[in-house]
Design a protein around this nucleic acid. Structure first.
Length: 265
DNA sequence: TTTACTGTTAGGAC
DNA sequence: TGTCCTAACAGTAA
């Protein structure tokens, strides 16, 4: 389900199969309550081609030749499929680009939490959203600045797309598990070394997931992703996986090796 | 039948 | 002004 690695996999799928093909039509599925380009916006894409892709955090951008960018956000359950002519129509398709030769790009979204829109300028869009640096390319100093100094729970800071774009609930938990930080620890209580370890861990985790094409079954068995059940054995110490809500989101962690890192008491 | 869910954001509390 | 927290969005699956 969509965090940065899924967005990157979707972007790659588009880059591999949907560029440099003339767009013949745009089709909408059942889209009530969803943000979709209106008829005028859709008409702007007809006859042109997509020529490039970009991703920032969980946000996907597909550039048309000399024209607008198609922005796609996968929401909670969205996915991208690129199909050859004659392929069966997947379920829950909300937005389809039909290329020459009946080649198709489908945006599926069962829960309708995703968004598709046409934008003129990617940088202006990112700035307008107030998104922080991309989690895969952010530097050490920028990471420390984004996450350190926050008085609230460190997990909430990791999840904030305004501080750092791309990390969601699953990989925030995985990062904290690997670095031994309690999700409720206050970021300002963590020393610079710990913050640096979290940066390294988050980047390594996200890159590893990207490298599998966001296929979780190919990730190492000792990762938390495979043990998100209260009562499971911790794979890093003798502890047990517990569950609690932090920042409104379900968090799995090991209370034995994940600590709050307070300097005093 | 009830409950929880991977993301985002508006609105309210402090 | 900023920061943080909660609720709500819609549909599915356990």
């Amino acid at each position: 389900m969509p965090e940065l690695p899924e967005a990157e996999a979707a972007r790659a799928r588009i880059a591999d199969g949907a560029l440099n093909r003339t767009i013949e039509a745009i089709e909408l599925g059942e889209v009530s309550h969803m943000d979709m380009p209106d008829a005028d916006a859709r008409a702007r894409l007809i006859g042109t081609q997509f020529t490039r892709t970009h991703r920032h955090g969980k946000y996907i951008f597909v550039g048309s030749k000399g024209g607008p960018w198609l922005h796609i956000h996968l929401g909670m359950a969205g996915s991208i499929r690129v199909c050859e002519a004659g392929a069966d129509l997947p379920k829950y398709v909300r937005f389809t680009v039909v290329f020459e030769g009946d080649h198709r790009l489908h945006f599926r979204d069962p829960r309708k939490f995703g968004h598709v829109e046409l934008i003129e300028d990617v940088d202006a869009f990112i700035g307008g959203k107030g998104l922080g640096p991309d989690a895969l390319s952010i530097g050490d100093n920028a990471f420390a600045q984004a996450i350190g100094g926050t008085r609230g729970a460190v997990k909430s800071a990791l999840l904030s797309q305004r501080k750092l774009a791309g990390i969601g609930n699953l990989w925030a938990d995985e990062t904290l598990y690997r670095t031994g930080v309690d999700p409720e620890a206050r970021a300002c209580d963590l020393d610079a070394g710990r913050i640096g370890e979290m940066h390294t861990a988050s980047r390594d985790i996200l890159q590893a997931v990207v490298d599998t094409g966001a296929d979780y079954s190919r990730l190492p068995g000792d990762w938390l992703i495979h043990h998100r059940n209260a009562g499971d054995d911790c794979t890093r110490c003798d502890g047990t996986i517990e569950k609690k809500t932090v920042g409104g989101r379900t968090s799995y962690f090991c209370a034995s090796h994940q600590t709050k890192g307070e300097a005093h008491g």
